[in-house]
């Protein structure tokens, strides 16, 4: 029995010792093998829906739609040495100008690291969606994609008559004459209209500059195209607003070629949510509390980049 016990213990000792020696030799090999295997990754980052700043709404099967999550994904792609190129899959009618601008700036930073960023337009990549595409290295669109809508508006509705009819009388104590500018309970004054127009012109100028720089066009030419209209993908291609007509997989192949990846690239999709993170909520991932109990954000108008914060 004693011999048996000693033999078992010695056998365990041998197994552990061999494992330790194996660890010393296997670990570097495995690391390099795994790193080598990941060398040809192309990251896919989805821009779905209205582009709004902050954390946005929680989606059931995706990360929150706000640009904070999008920017986080861009940073992850930048920091992951295995990611050699990024495809930005855009399916967005636009959103707020600051949010589009912030994401656009982060895309430029990602490109500055030497990783090509390619835009692939889905159903629609208009306005703020086009803003993001314009800062990428190459734009792919389907012939029937709706794009363009380069321009800015700030919406305003005057509900004073309706308020009068239903007996609502709103009063404000203001710190300054323009503190309630764009307030829906009174008409806009000529002075206020001029103030807003200057803001719109400024934002429009910024948008035009982004497109001119990204598409390597003269600003005057961009202004000719940027009267707010939408274009089909094939029209945009003819006008130089899009580089190639093709699907998302054409864009992936294009991104891989730009990054010098040979063969079929490994795809890494960002923004997936695990059932675990849905249940327990980890960091920026979706949680039940955010899914079910958070106040639903008011609808954001779907057309052009806006300049109005949700809370005035």
């Amino acid at each position: 029995m004693l011999v048996f016990k000693r033999s078992v213990v010695l056998l365990i000792a041998v197994v552990v010792a061999v494992s330790l020696v194996a660890a010393a030799f296997i670990v570097p090999g495995v690391k390099s093998r795994r790193a080598g295997g990941e060398r040809s990754k192309v990251a896919i980052i989805y821009v779905d829906g209205v582009i709004v700043g902050g954390r946005g709404q929680a989606g059931l099967l995706g990360e929150p739609g706000g640009t904070d999550a999008l920017i986080k994904q861009l940073h992850q792609a930048r920091d992951d040495a295995a990611v050699k190129a990024v495809v930005l899959r855009i399916n967005s009618p636009g959103g707020s100008a600051p949010a589009s601008q912030e994401v656009g700036t982060e895309i430029k930073k990602l490109r500055a690291t030497g990783k090509p960023v390619v835009a692939s337009m889905g159903d629609v990549a208009a306005s703020g969606g086009y803003w993001l595409a314009a800062v990428t290295d190459r734009i792919y669109a389907n012939p029937a994609t709706l794009t363009g809508s380069i321009g800015v508006y700030i919406p305003y509705a005057n509900w004073q008559e309706l308020y009068n009819k239903i007996g609502i009388r709103s009063e404000k104590i203001k710190s300054g004459p323009h503190k309630d500018i764009l307030s829906p309970d009174r008409p806009m004054t000529a002075e206020e209209r001029a103030i807003i127009q200057v803001m719109v012109d400024d934002l429009y100028g910024q948008f035009v500059a982004v497109v001119a720089e990204g598409r390597k066009m003269e600003p005057t030419r961009v202004r000719e195209l940027a009267d707010g209209r939408i274009y089909t993908g094939s029209q945009a291609k003819e006008l130089g607003l899009v580089d190639e007509l093709g699907t998302m997989y054409d864009a992936i192949d294009g991104a891989a070629a730009m990054a010098g990846i040979k063969g079929k690239p490994v795809l890494h999709e960002y923004g997936k949510v695990s059932p675990w993170s849905m249940l327990f909520g980890s960091g920026e991932d979706v949680s039940l509390e955010r899914l079910f109990f958070r106040r639903i954000r008011q609808d954001v108008p779907l057309t052009a980049p806006l300049a109005i914060p949700e809370k005035w």
């Binding site: 552990v16 194996a22 660890a23 296997i26 495995v30």
Partner: peptide, 16 residues
Amino acid sequence: FIFAVPLAVAGLLLPA
């Protein structure tokens, strides 16, 4: 805890 090492080595040989 000594068995953590064979466990880790076995893990290294499997897919991530």
